[in-house]
């Protein structure tokens, strides 16, 4: 009798462990959260500093930006192009500047705060070189000797140019 009870107990135990595998929700949620964190991390670039309306120039042989690199030394200057009025607009940290010369004070202040800082010029592909030249002169005047041009690697050439640019 006793052996029968033991056999039954064993049988029940086996049914508990060997039964149909259940769908485990908790590990799935773990994986989902990790995936979501991953995609959040790779999408969160420094959006605030960058003007997304710019059409950057294309360059195949440019050095890709290091994703892990600290961006604290970067001073991002956006140069957009108004094709209708044939004028460039400068902006830095969300502040607009009418000319490149007017940025000198701000750039000198940045350079004084961080001597290792360098300027990243994010210029529209249609900007005339005189504006870039003025900006580089301003950088030199502010004591910043290293300038980097932001470009796209294999950018979308098929993308239509904005109507303003077609008037040039």
């Amino acid at each position: 009798m006793a052996s029968l009870t033991i056999k039954r107990q064993r049988k029940r135990k086996r049914a508990d462990t060997d039964g149909d595998p259940e769908f485990q929700v908790a590990p799935m949620v773990d994986v989902l959260l990790v995936l979501m964190l991953f995609f959040m991390a790779i999408t969160s670039t420094e959006v605030l500093k960058k003007d997304k309306n710019l059409q950057l120039a294309d360059a195949k042989h440019a050095k890709p930006n290091d994703q892990n690199k600290q961006h604290k030394n970067e001073i991002v200057v956006n140069v957009s192009w108004d094709g209708i009025n044939s004028a460039a607009h400068f902006s830095m940290d969300g502040i607009d500047y009418p000319t490149a010369d007017s940025m000198q004070g701000a750039l000198a202040h940045e350079h004084a705060a961080n001597p290792a800082a360098y300027v990243v010029i994010r210029a529209d592909r249609d900007v005339e070189y005189s504006n870039i030249s003025d900006l580089m002169s301003t950088c030199g005047g502010a004591g910043i000797s290293t300038v980097t041009f932001a470009v796209l690697i294999g950018g979308d050439k098929n993308k239509p140019t904005p109507p303003g640019a077609a008037l040039n």
Partner: peptide, 24 residues
């Protein structure tokens, strides 16, 4: 949320840099 971040990650453009030293 996962779909949203996956789609926005795909539309991201990869920026690169061309560095130069200014005279002086």
């Amino acid at each position: 949320l996962l779909l949203f971040f996956m789609v926005s990650a795909g539309a991201q453009k990869h920026e690169a840099s061309l560095t130069t030293e200014l005279p002086g």
